[in-house]
Amino acid sequence: MTIIQNNIDINKPVAEVYAFLADLNNHEQLMPENIYNWSSTADEASFTIKNMAKLALKISQRIEHKELVCVPSTEAPFAMTLRWKLDEKSADLTNATFVIEAELNMMMKMMASGPLQKLVDHQVSKLKELLG
């Protein structure tokens, strides 16, 4: 299991950060430029990663103000789980951690680890940019 993650502090209450992340329609704003053909509902999203793959994700678990878990809803290039974990530091400060857990063989790990880390880093920084 390959685990790729990053976290950031956001100057917002945990309920506000959770409400934003709980709706997959908002996740398009977190995506890098190489994502296109975005389509989403509150619970599912599908998109294409330029020169890579088409992905469809669905929320498989919601723990209010704590965690959101997304898994592929169609065939994916490899098994993976995307997880947002929230930790309330104070009334107006939330730590958000984005974790991708992926089943990668050695070859896939060499090819995908860099792009996946860039995706994680991009999403946490965009979340901070959007929510403060």
Rank of each mutant, 00 (worst) to 15 (best):
T48R: 11
I3G: 01
Q29L: 12
N37M: 06
K128V: 02
A76Y: 04
W38T: 06
N51S: 05
I49Q: 08
K85M: 05
L131I: 02
N51H: 12
V71K: 14
A42S: 09
K118T: 09
W84H: 11
N6P: 05
L104C: 11
I35P: 01
V120A: 10
K118E: 14
V120M: 06
M52Y: 15
S40Q: 04
N105A: 14
L21W: 02
I10G: 07
T2V: 06
V14T: 12
F47H: 11
I35T: 10
F20R: 06
V99E: 15
D9N: 13
S46A: 09
M80T: 09
A45S: 15
S73R: 07
F47W: 09
Q5R: 12
K66P: 00
V120H: 05
L86M: 14
M108Y: 03
N105F: 07
K109E: 14
K118Q: 13
A22L: 13
E67Y: 01
K128A: 05
E101H: 08
K118N: 12
K126F: 02
L116E: 11
A45T: 15
I100A: 09
I59L: 07
K58F: 04
A19P: 02
G114D: 10
V71G: 03
A79R: 11
K109F: 02
F78R: 11
Y18Q: 04
M108A: 11
L30D: 05
A91D: 15
M31Y: 06
E101W: 03
N95H: 11
N11V: 00
K85E: 10
I63K: 15
I59C: 06
N34P: 00
H27S: 11
R62S: 08
S125V: 13
M31S: 13
H65I: 03
A76G: 12
M108R: 08
E88Q: 13
A15V: 15
D87N: 13
A112C: 08
P72Q: 10
R83W: 01
N37P: 03
E101D: 12
N6G: 08
A45Q: 09
V99N: 10
N25R: 15
E101I: 12
K50V: 04
T74M: 10
K118P: 00
Q29N: 15
N7R: 14
T81D: 00
I63Q: 13
N7F: 08
L82E: 06
K118I: 00
F98Y: 14
A112W: 07
S113C: 06
D121I: 03
I35K: 02
I4R: 03
D92Q: 15
I49E: 04
A102P: 05
M110F: 12
F78L: 06
L127W: 09
I8E: 08
Q117A: 12
V71R: 15
I3Q: 11
F98A: 08
M108L: 13
S39F: 12
G114H: 03
N37G: 09
V99D: 07
L93I: 13
R62L: 09
I4Q: 07
D87H: 10
A45W: 00
R83C: 08
I100Y: 01
L127H: 08
L68C: 05
T48L: 07
A19M: 01
T48Y: 09
I10Q: 00
V69K: 09
N34E: 12
L82G: 08
N6F: 01
K50M: 06
Q61G: 05
E88Y: 00
P72L: 05
H122W: 05
A19W: 00
N6I: 02
K58I: 01
P32S: 11
I59D: 01
P13G: 07
